[in-house]
Design a protein around this nucleic acid. Sequence first.
DNA 1: ATTGATTTCCTAACAATATTAGGATATAAT
DNA 2: ATTATATCCTAATATTGTTAGGAAATCAAT
Lengths: 189, 189
Amino acid sequence: MPRQGLTKEAVVKAAALLVEEYGFENLTLHKLAAKLNIKPASLYTHIKGIEELYSSLSHLALSRLRDEMLDAAAEKKQGEALRAIAFSYHGYARQNPEMYRIILKVPHSNFENLVGAGREVKSILFEILSQYTKEKTKIIYYSRYYHSILHGFVSLETAGFFDDGFSVEKSLSDIVNDFIRQLENKQFV
Amino acid sequence: MPRQGLTKEAVVKAAALLVEEYGFENLTLHKLAAKLNIKPASLYTHIKGIEELYSSLSHLALSRLRDEMLDAAAEKKQGEALRAIAFSYHGYARQNPEMYRIILKVPHSNFENLVGAGREVKSILFEILSQYTKEKTKIIYYSRYYHSILHGFVSLETAGFFDDGFSVEKSLSDIVNDFIRQLENKQFV
DNA sequence: ATTGATTTCCTAACAATATTAGGATATAAT
DNA sequence: ATTATATCCTAATATTGTTAGGAAATCAAT
């Protein structure tokens, strides 16, 4: 048997491709092994089991989302940064709906690295919002607020809740603008 | 074999109990049959398969959520109604986290009755928000906005994104108040 | 009440899936 | 070259969803 330089990274990335192509619930170790030209049992050399594969996929999705957010917000400040983040967040979820769904499908608390990855995404919002005030309580509050908006919007959209003929892009854009206006109208200390 | 008056409703409700007790991913037809004192194959008398069971669970969750929202908003108007809805929405998701997760786990577009149930939930928000303006575009816009906030918040909370020591209840309450204030500051036609 | 039709539930079997045990061989380390 | 390690394999198993076909309880109609 010719051996291929297979690594955990490669396994997870191959799984990510399958997930986006056929959907999360149609990912099986059999299909994944076939795509990698190995037998299902051989996957256990690289992963502990399918639960770890799920958590790795969730981690990968969070990392990619974080990268796109960081990229979008680079060199930008305040409102401009918040707008850029919203569109990158929305873009990632729309272009990778299955991967995005995995993020919330895996219970975070079970995996320390997932908690860390989630914290990284949150910290991006935290950084930008800290440009408005130095009060940590308020920064956390607005982070939760904005994160809820972004996650709620893209989740409901991909679930089909917004399939009523009205423009989804315009709604998001308006929501983001309203949120930013709200923020700017506050008189922070 | 003594026959019991088993109906689809009873099967789905039993499944709902299992889901909340052991988690969505631990629901199996074997366990469900055991709880109902029948054999797994007998379940197919009442359901077409596990996919239909999932969609029925999603439908049940949406119905219960709708009932709690309607109950909370009864006799109330505008801001008061919106506040009541938020707390009932949050309450349902927190007390039935697994059932709530099922709502977005099942692809809506595949099941017409699910689309209908989702519409019912949306229509509750629509009704209340139509007390602020008669412009349908704006009503839909704010429905999406508020729905995104509520769903995003409870999803992120149950996924563990808000486990940072700050009060979740206060955040939600403040968010709702900010949203309502925003709405009241608009000069609608 | 008896007959006939329908419904509910069963046993038995099957396919797909995740997983483990144990072994062969390619690769790396000494 | 020898040893150790890592990669991949075959084979077997438990769990799960599902279907086929049949027995018996229930219901409907006479």
